[in-house]
């Protein structure tokens, strides 16, 4: 792990990977999109709205996956002072927040034709809303200090406290939701998923992951440069 701790080495590996990741992302998303919109059947019950699932579910997967990624990076930052961990956490957060937001919006767009309402306090949607707020807090804390290193470390603590709380929040919201469950049981997915729908879903999921990896590297490069800019500006101020 510490072989990659050197930013110069990271940059070399990242730059080598970037073209491949870009190609992979575009290819996966392209194929996934084709399958989602053309090569897969409409649902027996939900009709064409089931196609929203092919962007809604991968977004939800990414929102969760990225938060775990940030939590791991935060742990690396606080425990081992890994220099790239902070950069990774800062770069990843807006991507995760965006996917959480997309999950909510596409969920609403799916919900309105299906359940007749734009918002439902369903346990999963509510938990995703809370996750979205956790992301916003993380991003706000990152940028709240004059000295960026303070922001890195405070956000790392917040991310870890958040990740401990996520199962608790999920449990509470599930509990609360079943207590207030309306008569009709709302199911976000349909019955067991058919292979003709599973494959587009998985390929879109992979495409979203590759998109994250590609964009993460771009944003990490920016953040590393920003750190260098800060250091150089400070040095020049001192020498002036």
């Amino acid at each position: 792990m510490h072989r990659f701790a050197n930013p110069a080495r990271f940059l070399r590996i990242a730059n080598a990977l970037l073209p491949w990741l870009t190609v992979g992302t575009v290819a996966c998303l392209g194929i996934g999109l084709y399958m989602a919109l053309f090569a897969s059947p409409p649902d027996y019950q939900q009709g064409e709205t089931v196609r929203i699932m092919y962007v809604h579910v991968p977004s939800a997967w990414m929102a969760l996956f990225i938060y775990v990624f940030i939590a791991i990076a935060s742990a690396c930052s606080l425990i081992w002072r890994h220099p790239l961990a902070d950069v990774a956490a800062k770069a990843a957060s807006p991507i995760g927040a965006g996917f959480a937001f997309l999950t909510l919006v596409t969920g609403s767009l799916w919900g309105e034709p299906m359940w007749g309402t734009w918002w439902v306090w369903d346990a999963r949607l509510t938990s995703m809303l809370v996750l979205f707020f956790l992301y916003l807090g993380h991003m706000a804390l990152m940028g709240a200090f004059e000295e960026q290193s303070r922001g890195y470390r405070a956000a790392a603590v917040l991310a870890l406290v958040g990740v401990i709380n996520i199962p608790i929040i999920k449990f509470s919201v599930d509990w609360w939701s079943t207590l207030h469950q309306p008569a009709s049981v709302i199911r976000l997915d349909g019955p067991t998923i058919d292979p003709s729908m599973l494959w587009p879903l998985l390929i879109m999921g992979l495409g979203f992951k590759l998109f994250f990896a590609t964009l993460l590297i771009v944003r990490m490069k920016s953040e590393l440069m920003a750190a260098r800019v800060r250091a150089l500006s400070l040095a020049q101020l001192r020498n002036a």
Binding site: F133, A140, L141, A144, L158, N165, S172
Partner: peptide, 29 residues
Amino acid sequence: LTIGARRGGILVPLLVLPLYIPVLIFGIA
């Protein structure tokens, strides 16, 4: 977490409210 932060006053509720939800749910229950 927000000592020395800009706009720390508004930041505290934003950070803390998601974490408050379980206490709220079970307190009300």
